[in-house]
Design a protein around this nucleic acid. Structure first.
Lengths: 152, 152
DNA sequence: ATTTTTAGCAGGTATTTTTTCCGCTTATGA
DNA sequence: TCATAAGCGGAAAAAATACCTGCTAAAAAT
């Protein structure tokens, strides 16, 4: 499918606040409510919009300690890779996992309550996984920006 | 405010899919529609739920090339830091910016179309910023997990 | 060049959902 | 023990979504 300028604006608005009503969107876009409705349905069906979610403030639920954990595997067999990936993806403290180029194999973004919780996470959850060679942790001093918005 | 077990379940459900109706939530939680409605309002007012957003699939809008960019500043004066932070936060290609401990000062998550777009971004946008000492880029080979859900 | 087809949109309506109101019950504290 | 407040359920009102019909303009076909 192709997205025109109106679709781009619509996506920007919905990425910023998905609770806007079709009426409000129609006003901002200069369209009728029906037109907005159909454009949104089309974007959903095409998979451009993958889901709608509520975002929770980390500090309100004791998850404001963020760390990046870089990981090297011991050996890169296919079995090791898929095994490690499926296991690490299950850890709820780990919000993001990326297989990356460079010195380390994986970058993990981990969110927990505090340093003590991070220590426990490393000890009992992460290093309990098989195939891990070495790790290196980098701690977030200040989250300057953290958005889900893709500017299109 | 304090959140009980039902609130935790409710937050889990809304973080997964904010389009669930109060009726559906009421069924899953064993409450009335009104009770669900009031719990959600309370979580919103307390700032536990910060916002509702639509998530867009990167590959559908030509933003599936992801890189982490580590940055060192030339000098750590307060002016440099706040200047750099406010400028880098404006770049739409940069979804996340963290001031971190360790060898580098900042970690950026950058999403663009492809390597060529990344090269242009580095050349024209990022290194155009003042105060940057050195950078190091790490490229994502495979995004294994990428969620916004805080498990509470 | 003319007709046919299709895509996108507006207006109206039915359906669903959200929001509000009211009263009941239970826990809390004076 | 009584007063107060918090949380909940049910019902009604308000609002939003989903659907239907028909119009128009652009694209495709003859």
């Amino acid at each position: 499918m192709q997205t025109d300028g109106i679709d781009k604006k619509l996506l920007a608005l919905l990425q910023d606040d998905s609770k806007r009503t079709n009426k409000e969107l129609a006003g901002k876009l200069g369209l009728s409510v029906t037109a907005v409705y159909e454009r949104i349905r089309k974007l959903e069906r095409a998979g451009v919009i993958s889901k709608y979610v509520a975002l929770v403030k980390p500090e309100k639920v004791d998850r404001s300690f963020t760390a990046f954990c870089m990981i090297k595997l011991v050996q890169h067999t296919k079995k090791n890779v898929t095994g490690f990936e499926s296991q690490v993806a299950k850890l709820t403290e780990v919000l993001e996992v990326f297989h990356v180029s460079g010195e380390y194999d994986y970058i993990l973004k981990v969110m927990v309550k505090d340093m003590e919780a991070y220590r426990e996470f490393m000890l009992n959850k992460l290093t309990a996984l098989e195939h891990i060679g070495s790790t290196q942790s980098t701690f977030v001093i200040n989250p300057v920006k953290n958005t889900t918005v893709l500017s299109i």
